[in-house]
Design a protein around this nucleic acid. Structure first.
Lengths: 334, 334
DNA sequence: TTGTAAGCGTTATCAC
DNA sequence: GTGATAACGCTTACAA
């Protein structure tokens, strides 16, 4: 079934069928109905490729992330897909991994597919050195690039992120105010937002004249046992801390397991604050106090901005949301 | 840049450029090189829409799932996307939700996008009544349909799943053999695989002449606190059990929290077995014994089969893998 | 209000 | 080997 078949059966030209299909006003109600009847009768649907060629768009958005099975990224993808679908856009998912080379490839893939926009999900896309971000700028020459949890000042690049710095700074401050002074910062990434979180912690400690303690975990993002073991080694080496702020709920969960392994009471012997307020926060007993970075709101804003850019060729360049500390059982009243 | 521009600059016809582009043998090495040079110089890439129209494919596969942020589904999507990309296919992600109506819509969306195949991820897509599965059969008229963790016997529909029945039956049997006779089955879905898991439990209990205890959780899939509370209510009502088999790691985790809340020792006072062997299994202390259903292997087999179908129009219709019980701290030696 | 015809940028079938 | 040229199925001026 093509538009020709329909036009023939309805006794009109293909232009008229096309007009009906695209809701053009310049069609008499009578012919419109006649055409619609034929379309329905034969269950005709326009050929998406032909339409794409004619309109130079198939209404698709590329969603790129390092690893779509990551709890946090998966949630972001979920929100974005739903919101884009509501705007009649389809999503092409592309997991780029964490290497620069594979990221370039992934981005090229999406550009070749001629998507209308590309969303980079995750702060790890922005590197410290400008040269490493060049492939993003190149892509932006062709297609609007949206950054979720990253920032890059360039034409046709739009950023939406959460104020990680302030969130962690305030959380640390509240823990200090509750009387805990030996607080360990436990992290596993020095990405754009990773750096900002850590700065927040450092600033809070310095402000209160306290000595910072930082511990970096280099292993796999999902290796909770490995994280726990690393903390246990710290303990064996005599490093004491009664508070722990984690850059991620996974790390915080490892801290809870660490305490349980040693028979410590939470929050009396150890207070823990996580980040992301993911489902993991509910997974332990007591439940995790965690920083909520408003992912759904971030995604909604990003989608809205992208729609603005796509229609008006203009949108808000940078937006920063503020996070919320969600209090649960791993901290005393802060 | 179009193929015309390139042909002009290279001093050949568009046919020759197209031949070079598609690796046709009938081009002299000299012209091939000349054309390639021009292509490289101008960074030309063929227009995907035009190519799609000509070839009637853009090499895309639709991946449909109820909720891509679900831990298990997210993992499946991750594997599938990677494997499809290796085969030079792009993925269009579409979250359909759990309602029949929205599923129909989602499937239509993918068909209209003219994907080359559709993967339904999750056992919940297959309903008990044939009429409810009709929309899948209709889609299969046009496009091969792959079922991950579901089975449906129909033309152009292919199924890959794990033997949930046997996995749960054996796990239950081993728990019984370890001396635990009052075992609760905790579940939250009566989907295709949900039913099979439950049957496995029931069969094992009956075989050993034990009275089954089943508890259904009707709330949100992520509401671990709600699940924990439901178990606590059960306890308050005097229902005793020293073993618990869960249809999902989330439910198993709730069981661990339930025990911790009551001050029970795991596994001495309560043994727990989960399902999926997801990251959640690592999240509690002690860690979850869980049934691994070989998701990556399932996905790989599904992708391979789909590639077979796409190239030869023929592939293995039904495949069943067997699961593994991964022993960890929530059970005594089984 | 409707129809004609020219794109859109490929692939593929012919000739030569 | 290479080059015309006809599909592919739509959108959209431009005419009528």
């Amino acid at each position: 079934m093509t538009i020709y078949d329909i036009s023939e059966k309805a006794g009109v030209s293909i232009a008229t069928v096309s007009r009906v299909l695209n809701g053009s006003a310049n069609v008499s109600e009578e012919t419109r109905q006649r055409v619609l009847d034929v379309i329905e009768k034969y269950e005709y649907t326009p050929n998406a490729f032909a339409r794409g060629l004619g309109l130079n768009t198939m209404r698709t958005i590329g969603i790129m992330c390092a690893d779509s099975s990551d709890l946090y990224l998966a949630k972001a993808i979920y929100y974005l897909e739903r919101q884009l679908r509501e705007n009649d856009y389809r999503c092409i998912l592309c997991c780029s991994g964490y290497e620069l080379d594979t990221r370039r490839e992934s981005l090229d893939l999406l550009l070749q597919q001629k998507v209308d926009g590309i969303i980079l999900v995750g702060s790890n896309y922005i590197y410290g050195q400008a040269a490493q971000n060049k492939y993003i700028l190149d892509a932006a020459l062709t297609t609007p690039i949206m950054l979720l949890n990253g920032a890059l000042d360039a034409p046709n690049v739009y950023s939406v992120l959460c104020d990680d710095y302030t969130s962690v700074q305030e959380a640390t401050g509240r823990m200090i105010a509750s009387g805990i002074h030996d607080i360990l910062y436990f992290y596993n990434s020095d990405s754009y937002s990773g750096k900002r979180k850590r700065s927040g912690y450092l600033n809070a400690m310095e402000t209160h004249g306290l000595e910072p303690m930082q511990e970096f975990f280099a292993g796999n993002h999902e290796d909770i046992s490995g994280m726990t073991e690393q903390l246990l080694r710290l303990h064996q080496n005599g490093q004491a801390f009664h508070g722990l702020i984690a850059a991620d709920d996974t790390l915080a969960l490892a801290a809870v397991k660490y305490a349980q392994t040693l028979g410590m009471q939470i929050p009396d012997d150890l207070s823990v604050i996580g980040y992301n307020n993911s489902i993991l926060a509910q997974c332990c007993h007591p439940e995790l106090t965690s920083i909520d970075n408003k992912l759904e709101a971030l995604c909604q804003h990003l989608t809205d901005t992208l729609m603005d850019v796509l229609t008006d060729n203009y949108g808000i360049k940078n937006t920063m949301f503020s996070g919320d500390l969600i209090l649960r059982g791993t901290t005393k009243a802060l």
